[in-house]
């Protein structure tokens, strides 16, 4: 496979690791878009990212010219192989002090990033894949919901999503109709808002940030930003890992691994409205990496 030539993807910020799991001074190696990268936190706790090379063993020895753009946002180190925008997409809820903010896990998944985003957007699989947690038969209907591509914010927004969930989160004490809002503010990242069982006026935030290792492999970073005063961190993480572990074999068995953007390639149903918008949005952006573009 050739390395990434897609300028849109090259110029994005991409997540490469959780700050919480970085050891100060310790160098971690990873792969982004088929390039080997190393990253570490310097003495000030700021992330330093560079293309891996044997003669550079620590963040303080990286020549300035060899450093890649780096930022620490939402608990992760982000970098770019091109010229990234000044800002990353906003998640205002992340600043709210009473939220629990955790990296549920970073998992390697044998799937393209767009396929993983589509699965994240899909409610139809809840009763079958996340049985007794995010769904249960016979409550299988995906009710009508709204999707828009916001031109101002350059993101996809799915609203008015509702689903019956037996156990929507660790803070749940029984089944409930749960409201969802989905955002796709980045071709490989999605943010989900769902009713909080502890505060009717607010929503839990769960985001998936996909690090494209290559066109058919990702590292999936899962951010939790939730309201839960009772459960230990590990209990909240375990809940989300359980969900993700159920999705994993489904994701890894999708064929073709890259997401086909031709509307005739796969047959959607009404419940797939958000996926249709997502594919159209990727096409409009001219994205070629991790997808099968529409034939010219």
């Amino acid at each position: 496979m050739t390395k990434c030539l897609d300028p849109v993807i090259l110029n994005l910020w991409h997540p490469i690791g959780a700050i919480a799991e970085a050891v100060p001074g310790g160098v971690q190696d990873t792969v982004l878009l088929e390039e080997r990268l190393s990253f570490a936190l310097n003495a000030d706790g700021e992330p330093v990212v560079w293309r891996s090379r044997p003669d550079v063993q620590g963040p303080d020895r990286v020549p300035a010219a060899d450093r890649l753009p780096a930022r620490s946002t939402y608990g992760y180190v982000w970098t770019s192989l091109g010229s990234p925008p000044a800002e990353l997409f906003p998640i205002p809820e992340y600043e709210e002090p009473d939220r629990r903010k955790l990296n549920a896990a970073t998992f390697g998944v044998n799937v393209s990033a767009p396929r993983a985003i589509e699965n994240f957007l899909d409610m139809g699989h809840f009763p079958y894949v996340h049985t007794d947690i995010l769904g249960v038969e016979p409550h299988t209907e995906v009710k009508e919901y709204d999707v828009e591509i916001s031109v101002d914010r350059d993101e996809i927004l799915a609203t008015r999503c509702r689903f019956f969930q037996p156990m929507a989160s660790t803070a749940s004490d029984g089944g409930a109709d749960v409201d969802y809002v989905y955002r796709v503010p980045h071709p490989y990242c999605s943010v989900l808002y769902k009713s909080s069982p502890v505060d009717e006026a607010r929503r839990d935030v769960i985001a998936v940030f996909l690090q494209p290792v290559d066109q058919e492999h990702v590292r999936a970073h899962m951010l939790l930003c939730v309201l839960d005063e009772d459960n230990e961190d590990k209990v909240i993480k375990r809940f989300q890992q359980t969900i993700f572990g159920q999705d994993k074999p489904i994701l890894e068995n999708q064929v073709p691994k890259r997401l086909p953007l031709d509307p005739r390639a796969e047959t959607p149903i009404r419940a797939d409205k958000s996926a249709i918008a997502y594919r159209r949005w990727l096409s409009q952006k001219g994205i070629t990496y991790g997808v099968i573009p529409v034939a010219a």
């Binding site: 919480a20 990296n103 961190d233 590990k234 375990r238």
Partner: peptide, 10 residues
């Protein structure tokens, strides 16, 4: 008793 095997290495 849940043990945070990953990522916590508990």
């Amino acid at each position: 008793v849940p043990v945070d095997f990953y990522p916590g290495r508990e």
